[in-house]
Amino acid sequence: MQIELALFAKLSARYPVPGSGREPRPLEIEDGTRVGALVERIGLAAEPRITFVNGRHAADDRLLAEGDRLAIFPPIAGG
């Protein structure tokens, strides 16, 4: 199945598929893939991150579905 993956800011260097700049990219994944498994696949498991699926915060055990929009942000220190 296909989802849309958006990796923000410095995380955009980790896109697992080619694309244009930092724009979101379509990504083929296997049925039954959870957020945490995909995050591990693209090498972000150890990174602090903020993850949304379809505009809602999503935990690593969230099951992804066809057409989902997965967005991952790096929290940046300073305040």
Binding site: P48, I50, P74, P75, I76, A77, G79
Partner: peptide
């Protein structure tokens, strides 16, 4: 409005 990345997440 905190400063640590981990706390923000």
């Amino acid at each position: 409005a905190v400063d640590s990345a981990e706390d923000k997440a």
